[in-house]
Amino acid sequence: DVAKAIVDLAVCGKAQNRSYERLALLVDTVGPRLTGSPNLEKAIQIMYQNLMDDGLKNVHLEPVKVPHWERGQESAVMLEPRNHSMAILGLGSSVGTPPEGITAEVLVVSSFDELHRRASEARGKIVVYNQPYKGYGESVQYRVQGAVEAAKVGAVASLIKSVASFSIYSPHTGIQYYQDGVPQIPTACITVEDAEMMARMASRGTKIVIQLKMEAKNYPDTESFNTVAEITGSKYPEQVVLVSGHLDSWDVGQGALDDGSGAFVSWEALSLIKDLGLRPKRTLRLVLWTAEEQGGIGSLQYYQQHKVNISNFSLVMESDLGNFMPTGLAFTGSDKARAIMKEVMNLLQPINTTQVFGDGEGVDINYWIQAGVPGASLLDDLKRYFSFHHSQGDTMTALDPMQMNYSAAVWAVVSYVIADLDEMLPR
């Protein structure tokens, strides 16, 4: 009755709402946890102590060199055709503007293709991207590469429609990357509402002028840590099921949903298993990554340092797509492994979360998956997730304690059963 015991404890037993309450205490105390910030390092120290107090084994920190970027004050004011103060969020790694700001006419485009067609109009202007939302993976390319593409055609700054599935005038931040040999121009996200308004204005032939001010600054790399804790395997302790989420966040809201809840549901999975006195045959290893938002910096280093043991990794799991009511598991692995995962998910019939989808992935586990280790991610209402993450709305209010209970139940059952099977998942 292991699966039933885990679900009962998580959903209606004494562990009910525990992951939500633990997370609320952390994020209400330290706030958002931008890589390179004192907030993140304080959160890591608190988590280290939390995991020790929880009685988990082999609790330790693994140091990582991480980028250090700070936002500073920022503003964007439309000067023509009318005065309008715009909500913006500068993008991670963006350079700032001169103190007096950049004042320039706007060129609105809806795609990179349109930008390239109208390249001759872009010189000296602020490029505004009004790309349609075609799902996160496709639309996020505008945030990541928007500044580089605009700079290539002579723009002085870029303002990008937030990559958001829904908006109530809420800009979303995120990482962007410069390219060697291309001028580094300031870049920020604007709201869906302002991007669409400027597109309408431009289509009418109206001249738009914006003054952009950003104090953003990049500092030398600093030190952070991946946080690790385990339930040591009883029979094959060297073999591992890795359960994870990332502890860093952007510097907006509370980083509650991205990825505080994923990290805390992962911790909760080990807590539930330990509370029930269970000890799987293989080691259950919790890793709370650092610097995921900067492109999986902590997890890349972890992979490089631990890949020598890759044959001992049975399954890598990451929860970084929200912890609303789970709809199932996204899984990448062989047909044989998938068939086994489907059987494991059948154990979750009592909470009606039995589906195994394709494309299990996560920034922090992709290195392992690409190297052939089976990988799983927790799936839920992604539209809701992409409405909140990277925005000021990423707070505890966006989360629901009961939904986190169900997420934790799924995570604990899957991780425990796979870690306890007689054999590792087939590759």
Partner: peptide, 24 residues
């Protein structure tokens, strides 16, 4: 140590299915 790596799968799928059902 009796380590079952990915090169050494001894159980049939039916046996694994029965094993998993034991966790219900």
């Amino acid at each position: 140590r009796a380590v079952c790596k990915d090169v050494c799968h001894l159980k049939t799928f039916e046996q694994i299915k029965e094993e998993i059902a034991g966790y219900q």
